[in-house]
Design a protein around this nucleic acid. Structure first.
Length: 446
RNA sequence: GCCCCCAUCGUCCAGCGGCCUAGGACGCCGGCCUUUCACGCCGGUAACACGGGUUCGAAUCCCGUUGGGGGUACCA
């Protein structure tokens, strides 16, 4: 039998990194076993459901490259079926009507204003084998009767989820560990409707530094935010795959297409995983550096436009393309890019106080360096090598090595102590007059 | 409170009874390279929570303790 899995997000918020990881593992399982990956939107709670969020949810999944084989299916469209199951349970006495005070009310059919509860059979042990957890068991004596149909006439998550999985032939339920304790209730309902049990695989939770489940209140969990902050989808999914799972050959940074070949759901471990931004950044930088030049220029585009710190009309694509080669390897995210080139598209370099202090105040011989380079740049050949030699000589005159000597010049021209290779940038992207103007400007401020 | 789950370097992952004086990655700390930063290279730091068993032998199996987490809604 071919495996069928589903990712069943609820459109009550933007796609969360934990949900994305669940989607990814379902996708990996399906792709690596030749199974089918279904997308189902669990929108049974109309009051909390926001239609526009569904659109965003799908967009982020697409951005991540997690394409689905069937769907999106909407749980809200299956209400009649859910109702039919509840009526059946009610008719057979396996569930009962209850009023607002949770008191049982006589009746064998859904009634307006009444909720329906599933009757928990006493004294039974519900056991199941979880692919990652192993054997898990619950006693029904620890469980309470639970609502399966709201008094407002809509199905509850557990009921809809169980019925839909059964109807859709879902063979494996791969999801977060926070759903583990709901399993016995679902199993009992499946038994009640004569449906087979799916195989479960509960993934370890993603946690923050306090070791608590990632929450959208406290933590940075929005996939859209990461996208906007310049993370690459391929880096994000690669990193997410490493939380709760590890490649058998220790090769961590590799494309999804390769991960599919080595992924096995049985290898997923049980302990919660900390979402480590530092490691994500490392992986992101690795992917960023590996981008072909043209693709880098194309994909960084959104950060070079409206949102950039310079007047859009001042942006010079040709200049930027020249700079691309000089800065690509220095970036961690796309959003790092503007600060490496902003001085080229602004009238004056940005004023970074720390940089100024370091190079012009704390650093020695700033005046000598600026005066010396200004004089020498006035008529030297405008070539990176020549500029470099010039600065080297000016520095030697006061006993500074090139590393120290270039600092005042760098800050005068770019505004910062950190930036692209200075001589190449000046020679290839700036003209003599502008560089001299900036040196003079800085000299005047000393 | 009750139920369930978890427990190897700071972090992620490896280890699934002997190959472990515990391996890789991120981070961190040194060094090299160097026009800043970054990259790259070299080296270093650092862990089997604790206590009992089982076994010739345990990070690996069992029990307990402690610690952590999740669940316990007419949310999903």
């Amino acid at each position: 039998m071919t495996h069928r899995v589903r990712f069943a997000p609820s459109p009550t918020g933007f796609l969360h990194v934990g949900s994305a990881r669940t989607a990814l593992f379902n996708w990996l399982f399906a792709r690596s076993t030749g199974g089918t990956y279904v997308l189902r939107v669990e929108d049974t709670d109309a009051e909390r459901n926001r239609p526009e969020l569904t659109e965003s949810l799908l967009a982020e999944l697409e951005w991540l490259g997690l394409d689905w084989d069937e769907g999106p299916l909407y749980q809200s469209e299956r209400r009649d079926r859910h109702r039919e199951v509840v009526e059946d349970l009610l008719g057979r006495g396996l569930a009962y009507l209850c009023d607002a005070d949770n008191a049982e009310v006589e009746g064998s059919s859904i009634t307006d204003g009444m909720a329906v509860r599933f009757r928990m059979p006493p004294g039974r042990t519900v056991e199941f084998e979880d692919i990652v957890r192993g054997g898990v068991s619950f006693s029904t004596d620890d469980l309470e009767d639970f609502v399966i149909w709201r008094s407002n006439g809509s199905p509850m998550f557990l009921l809809a989820n169980a019925v839909d999985d059964a109807d859709m032939g879902i063979t494996h339920a791969i999801r977060g560990e926070d759903l583990l304790s709901g399993v016995p209730k679902v199993l009992l309902m499946l038994d009640a409707i004569g449906a087979p049990h799916p195989t479960y695989a509960h993934l370890p939770l993603l946690v923050n530094e306090q070791r608590k489940k990632l929450s959208k209140r406290r933590d940075d969990v929005s996939i859209a935010d990461y996208r906007e902050r310049g993370y690459l989808a391929e880096a994000m999914v690669n990193y997410l795959a490493l939380l709760g799972w590890g490649p058998p050959d220790d090769v961590e940074v590799r494309p999804l297409s390769e991960i599919v070949d080595v992924f096995r759901i049985e290898d997923v471990n049980k302990a919660a995983a900390f979402f480590d931004l530092k490691k994500l950044e490392h992986i992101n930088a690795t992917y960023l550096r590996a981008l072909p030049r043209a693709e880098f220029i194309e994909r960084v585009g959104p950060w070079m436009g409206e949102a950039a710190p310079w007047p859009t009309e001042r942006f010079d694509r040709g200049v930027f393309e020249t700079m691309a080669d000089l800065i690509q390897e220095k970036l961690r995210t796309f959003s790092d890019t503007p600060r490496f080139v902003d001085f080229l598209f602004l009238d004056d370099p940005v004023d970074d106080p720390d940089s100024w202090h370091k190079a012009m105040v704390k650093g020695k011989f700033a005046a000598e360096i600026l005066d010396g380079t200004a004089a020498a740049f006035a008529d030297c050949t405008w070539d990176a090598e020549v500029l470099k030699d010039t600065v080297m000589h000016v520095g030697e005159a006061v006993g500074l090595k090139l590393g120290k000597a270039q600092a005042p010049l760098r800050v005068a021209v770019t505004g910062r102590t950190v930036g692209p290779p200075l001589f190449e940038t000046m020679a290839e992207c700036m003209d003599r007059a502008e560089v001299l103007r900036r040196i003079a400007r800085a000299r005047a401020r000393l």
